[in-house]
């Protein structure tokens, strides 16, 4: 049976991870390659590197990080942030990433989803979506609106309609981040997640709000997510990947046992 995936997100700026991290073992804190290796050895199913830099010099550093990660870990990983065109996509994939996550660039130029899927294959293109709850209206019938530029700019686009359009355009997967839940550690946005997950036939990764293993159980069981993104709950040393997996396994949820 297909396992539910646990994906760890690492924010990278100028070649370093930005959140403080506590590992029990002696890991070079702030080095994304060392952290990726540590999580790989803990049995995480997948990784996401989110580039929060701006300048083109920093992009080169990120490509170097991707290249070094690819030489050291042998599980899928994706890269998001700052990917604007096919050339950016090619560089990231060529350096060894499995998938590219596009968010703002896809909203500004939806053709990028179709082009990326055609050139590199649907499985390479992850649509990142930042959604925020609003009052239902004619323009936003689902009650969730898409925001871009790292959650700073509202677009007036309905989240449900956008998810379906991205699927039609060839996105292989959706990474759905709830702006309302993000950073709260109080659990994923279940209503939003099940709304999108039921509407599309591609896998949905739930993101934003994970603070404890019960939150992952809820988003898998109640909201039908295919994968769950986590960050601070492991970065700050509160839980290890294997603790989370053994909890989920005990709850009857299929996870990849690390052997």
């Amino acid at each position: 049976m297909l396992s539910k995936r646990i994906i760890i997100c690492l924010d990278v700026r100028e070649g370093k991870t930005t959140k403080g991290v506590r590992f029990k073992r002696n890991v070079d804190i702030g080095d994304p390659v060392a952290m990726a290796k540590e999580y790989y050895e803990q049995g995480v199913d997948e990784l996401v590197f989110y580039d929060i830099t701006a300048s083109s010099d920093d992009r080169k550093i990120l490509i170097d990080v991707v290249d070094r990660v690819a030489q050291n870990i042998f599980i899928p990983f994706s890269v998001g942030g700052g990917v604007r065109d096919l050339t950016d996509m090619y560089r990231v994939l060529d350096a060894g990433a499995e998938k590219i996550s596009i968010n703002t660039a896809a909203v500004l130029n939806p053709g990028l989803i179709s082009e990326g899927a055609r050139y590199f294959g649907n499985q390479c293109i992850v649509l990142g979506m930042d959604a925020k709850g609003v009052e239902k209206s004619e323009a936003i019938p689902s009650g969730y609106e898409i925001w871009i530029n790292g959650g700073r700019t509202a677009t007036g686009i309905d989240a449900l309609a956008w998810a379906k359009e991205a699927e039609d355009r060839g996105a292989g997967e959706i990474c759905l981040n709830s702006i309302d839940a993000d950073g709260t550690n109080e659990g994923y946005e279940l209503t939003l997640t099940s709304l999108i997950s039921e509407a599309v036939s591609i896998p949905v990764i739930a993101s934003g709000g994970a603070g404890k293993p019960e939150h992952l159980r809820d988003v898998f069981v109640k909201a039908g997510a295919d994968a769950a993104l986590i960050a601070s709950m492991v970065h700050y040393g509160d839980y290890t990947v294997s603790q989370i997996k053994s909890y989920l396994s005990g709850e009857g949820i299929p996870v990849r046992e690390f052997v």
Partner: peptide
């Protein structure tokens, strides 16, 4: 959902040298 994307197990139907030493629970 299509594609079938993620980690899954094997049910081994016959022995093969490339599976030597492989844990049956592996995904």
């Amino acid at each position: 959902k299509i594609p079938h994307m993620g980690w899954n197990t094997l049910e081994i139907k016959q022995k093969h040298p490339i599976l030597d030493g492989i844990d049956e629970k592996a995904q």
